[in-house]
Structure formats: C-alpha cells, structure tokens
Nucleic acid binder design. Structure first.
Lengths: 184, 184
DNA sequence: ACCTGAACACCGTTCAAGT
DNA sequence: ACCTGAACACCGTTCAAGT
C-alpha cells in the first residue's frame, strides 16, 4: 500500500509532539514511516510545504464560536491557545509557517468576521484580528519555550500565564469596544 | 591580532542583513572572518548564544522615550519597529532568541515602567508591555516575511502596514487607558 | 590563548535505476 | 506511480595538534 500525503503530515505531526520542532527533520519523518528520505518527495514538494501542512492540520482544530461578539472572540482566542498548547512548539511552527506563505488555513477570517459584526469597518476588523493572532502566538510561543526549557532545566519562578493571556485579550477587546459602534 | 567576541557578533549581524536568517550559518560567519569554523567556538559557546547576542545588539538601538505615558509608549513601539525593519529577518530572530532564554536585553522593562507610571499595577504593566512586544514582533515578522517573499516573487496586493501597526498599538493603549488610574 | 585541519554525526534535496 | 540506493552540498560541533 503506497504512502499517502495525509500519512506523511500525520507522521510529521507526531514527531513534532514527541521531539519538538528542532527534532522534526525529513529524515526522521521518513524513518518513522520506514521509508527512504527521498520517498517523501513524491508526496510533498519540500520541508517548508510539509511544515505548513502540519500547521494547517493543527489549526483545523480551532473552534469558530458564534454569538455576542465579545464572548465569541474570547472563546476563539481561548480555543486557539488550547489547540496550540496541546502540540509542542506549535506556536513557533505556526508563526514560521505563516512566513512561508504556503498555508491554506486563514487563521484570522473568523475573528475578523465577528469584529466586523461588532461594528468595526472591514479594514479595522482585519487589523484587530491580526493583532489578536499576533498576541496569542507570541504568548503561547513564550509558554512553550518555557515548557521546552523546563524539560532539562530547573523550573524558574512561577508565573500565571492564564492571567497574562486574559489581560492581553482583554486590552485588545477593550480597544475594540471603544471603537465599535454596535456594542451588542 | 586575535579575533574578538564583538567581531564575531558584528560579522553575524552583517550576514543576517545581507543574506537573511536562513543564510546565517556558523561556517559563513567563519569564512567572512577568514577563519576556520572551529575558531568561532573560542569566542562563543554555540550558535544559539551567538544569535541571542546578535538580537541583543540590534535591540540596543531601540529608544527609551520619557514623558506622558501614551506618547512615550507609542514612540517606544515605533522605535522598536524601526530598528527591526532596518535588519532583515530580525523580528523572527528576536522571537527565536527569546525562546533560548539567553538574552541579556530585557525588552519589556522600559514600556512596563511607563505603564506602571500610568497607574497600572506592576503585574498588569508587565503583562501589557509583553502584549505590546508580541504585537510588534508579530507585525514586523509579517512585514519582513513579505519583504523576503517579494525578493523572488511578484508583489502581492498592496497593504498599508503603517495603518495596521498604529491600529494594534492604539487598541492595546485604549485598553490600558480604560484600566489605568492616572490618565496623565 | 588562539587557531588549523580534520573528523563526526547529522541535514535537505536530487536522481538514476528498479518494480 | 512509487520507492530504493546513493550521492551532493551543505550543516553545528569537537578536538588533537600546532604556535
């Protein structure tokens, strides 16, 4: 039975979760699938595209809640964070993959829609959704870098990551509320 | 005349600006200095530490403006963006180097001080400063990824990056204003 | 102390040859 | 079409040996 594209992406995702981003090499994906490295290139054009596919697969698990704009956006942000924290190093992976411009997944589409419904002009809604995404990625990358660090080093001083997360989202949404016409 | 730590960091920074982050290898730094790769390890323990030193050197150029909190924080954010945009791929470099936890530079110290003076409790001031940093890094990483892309591909649809930047900073600072006691 | 020369254990990617 | 085997052009890092 020949290898499929989905199997390659899945194997890569499994290695990411087990060994982290720095352990995710084409050769290790190949060896996990018991295949020669060159065989991967029948299913994926290069490593960048494979990483983008892994990022898309992870992001596919993010909820797209509806309802009153503020709780819905807060739930979206919380779901994004939850999905990222469930996959080691995925915040950095997603940030990196965004740079390649090879993603199919449009991460900001849903929050931008919610913010436009709140009364923000389309341009501002997209901008605010991007700002939210940057904050969540930056915050989760920091959390995951700390987790990676503490795999091999003694834990540093405890910090409440949840509080910091809610603060950042809250500040941005307060800013939105101040500018949005429709406060329902 | 023997090589110095500063020369190694400078050579690395020059290669970053010319060739980008993916072109920045220990072997290229060595060959720019007309030295064998192994020679670098007398001045730097490993590549991660070198990257962190380059990031610190770049961030040393960021202004630390004083005065009324809101214009001062806006000026800090604008200066950070300016410094990042002047060094190819530096937003991604700084984000990556932060993950190593090898930096001497405390990027959020100054804005956190300004925000505390604005009336935010110390914990919230640090959180808001981090949120600002995440936004600036994310926004600049996106700008620089686009610049890298357009080195070899036709330009995509024009977007106004300045507007997006001011929007993000404005949303966060509106949120701060809503929570800060001292509005001077 | 500082550097060379050479090696070690890896990378991503390509490609003729086989089935 | 799909994979193997083998190669190519790179990596980061280490270390005996020289000065």
């Amino acid at each position: 039975m020949p290898l499929s594209h989905a199997q390659v992406v899945d194997a890569a995702r499994a290695i990411l979760v087990r060994d982290g981003l720095e352990g995710l090499s084409m050769r290790r994906v190949a060896s996990a699938l018991e295949v020669q490295p060159g065989a991967l290139y029948h299913h994926v054009p290069d490593k960048q595209t494979l990483l983008a596919a892994v990022a898309d697969r992870i992001l596919a698990g993010v909820d797209e809640p509806l309802g009153r704009w503020r709780p819905a956006v807060e739930a979206w942000a919380a779901s994004l964070r939850e999905v990222l924290l469930a996959h080691r190093d995925s915040a950095e992976l997603v940030a990196t993959a965004r740079g390649f411009r090879l993603s199919r997944h449009d991460t900001t589409r849903h929050p931008a829609t919610l913010l436009a419904a709140a009364g923000l002009p389309p341009e501002a809604a997209r901008g605010a959704a991007s700002a939210l995404l940057y904050f969540v990625l930056g915050h989760c990358a920091e959390e995951q870098a700390r987790q990676d660090w503490e795999r091999f080093h003694p834990p540093g001083p405890a910090t409440d990551a949840d509080d910091g997360f809610e603060l950042g989202v809250g500040l941005l949404l307060d800013g939105v509320a101040a500018r949005a016409g429709n406060l329902e």
